[in-house]
Every structure is written in C-alpha cells, then in structure tokens.
C-alpha cells in the first residue's frame, strides 16, 4: 500500500493522526498532516484505510498494490 497525500486540501482536522498515529502526524505550527510512513507495514493497513475513509477533506488517497 502506498499513501498519497494532497496537502493543499488538508483542513488539519487531525482525524488521520488520531486513527493512525504511526502513519500520520500533524505539523506543529498549523496542524497540517504529515505522512510519517508512505508505505506502511501491512499490520497498519486497516488503520490507514480508516484514516483515509474519515478524512473530511478527502486528502488521503491509497494506492493498494
């Protein structure tokens, strides 16, 4: 799985960082998401899928391989 992040769309609501803290963090000054790991371990895939599903800005796209 590859995580693609469309930064201009991100409204920094932090849902991703809450659901998948090993894969997403938030930038200190404005809360915009940071992808910590663009090719997460399979054990994290469920969390990452949930993060993409709940992102209110549809800023997270997953390319499943």
């Amino acid at each position: 799985m590859k995580v693609e992040f469309d930064e201009p769309k991100c409204v920094a609501a932090g849902q991703c960082a809450m659901v998948a803290p090993d894969v997403f963090d938030q930038r200190d000054d404005d809360g915009v998401a940071i992808v910590l790991d663009a090719t997460p371990d399979p054990s994290l895939h469920d969390e990452v899928r949930e993060a993409a599903a709940v992102c209110p800005a549809a800023a997270i796209r997953l390319v499943e391989q």
């Binding site: 809450m18 200190d28 915009v32």
Partner: peptide
C-alpha cells in the same frame, strides 16, 4: 470557502491539534 478558508483555518488550528 477554500482557498481563503484553508488559509484562515490553518492560522487558528494549532491549539486544536490531536497532540
């Protein structure tokens, strides 16, 4: 609306971040 909304919201967002 975005993009103005995005600029304004990023300006007030920091204290509401998850961490």
């Amino acid at each position: 609306d975005p993009p103005e909304h995005t600029r304004l919201r990023r300006g007030v967002n920091a204290p509401f971040m998850v961490k």
